[in-house]
């Protein structure tokens, strides 16, 4: 069994209100010097497959459901 770690993040230049609101909240809590907060989504998918198959399956999952290519990019790392 392998674990495919799928990371979905916003493409460069796409506004990230969740990140911005989190930054604001952290600043309200008194944290100083925060330059930027970026929200990223990670799915850990346990798969009964070898590493190459898992990578292929993970990428297919991104194309079919996990990422919207208009605003997001994905990466699949096998652990």
């Amino acid at each position: 069994m392998v674990v495919a770690e799928i990371r979905i993040e916003l493409k460069q230049g796409v506004a990230d209100p969740e990140g911005q609101n989190t930054k604001k909240a952290l600043e309200l809590l008194g944290f100083k010097g925060i330059k930027n907060v970026k929200s990223i989504k990670v799915f850990d998918i346990e798969l009964d497959a070898d590493a190459a198959e898992a990578k292929k399956a993970g990428e297919e999952m991104c194309r079919k459901l996990l990422a919207n290519p208009v605003i997001q990019k994905f990466s699949v790392q096998i652990k």
């Binding site: 209100p17 969740e18 911005q20 919207n68 208009v70």
Partner: peptide, 13 residues
């Protein structure tokens, strides 16, 4: 085949 647009988080968050 793939989405050509997105409806994403409101700017207000």
């Amino acid at each position: 085949e793939h989405p050509e647009a997105a409806l994403y988080t409101n700017i207000s968050g």
